[in-house]
C-alpha cells in the first residue's frame, strides 16, 4: 500500500449577487441588441439582425437598437453600458458566442 499527497488545490468561492428587476412588458420599451463581437468584424451581428426582424414583426412598438461592443469579445465596454443606461435602455439582448 502506498500513501501519497493530494495534488488538488483548495479554492474559495466568491460572493454572489442577484439579478436586476424585470420589465412588466416589452411594448414601447427600448431594447438594445448587443453583439459581443465573438466571431470578428466580418461575421458579427447576423443573428441579432434576425432578432431585430422578429421584433419588428411581433412587437413593433419596441424600439430596437443594435450595437457592437467595442474591442474584441473578451474586453469590457463600459462606454456602451453607460450609453445604454443614459439612453434609458430598458433591456438588453446580448450575444452570441459560438
Amino acid at each position: 500500500m502506498v500513501s501519497v499527497l493530494n495534488p488538488a488545490i483548495a479554492t474559495r468561492f466568491a460572493d454572489r449577487v442577484p439579478l436586476a428587476p424585470r420589465l412588466s412588458t416589452l411594448e414601447g420599451k427600448t431594447i438594445y441588441l448587443v453583439d459581443t463581437d465573438w466571431g470578428g468584424m466580418q461575421q458579427n451581428d447576423g443573428i441579432l439582425e434576425e432578432i431585430q426582424k422578429w421584433f419588428a414583426q411581433n412587437i413593433p412598438s419596441a424600439k430596437i437598437i443594435i450595437k457592437i461592443k467595442a474591442g474584441n469579445f473578451v474586453t469590457d465596454d463600459p462606454g456602451l453600458w453607460k450609453e445604454i443606461a443614459g439612453n434609458h435602455g430598458d433591456g438588453v439582448v446580448i450575444g452570441v458566442a459560438g
Binding site: 445604454i84 443606461a85 438588453v92 450575444g95 458566442a97
Partner: peptide, 9 residues
C-alpha cells in the same frame, strides 16, 4: 446598471 438582460449563446 440594474438593466435586465437576455443573454444568448
Amino acid at each position: 446598471y440594474g438593466i435586465p438582460t437576455a443573454p444568448v449563446s
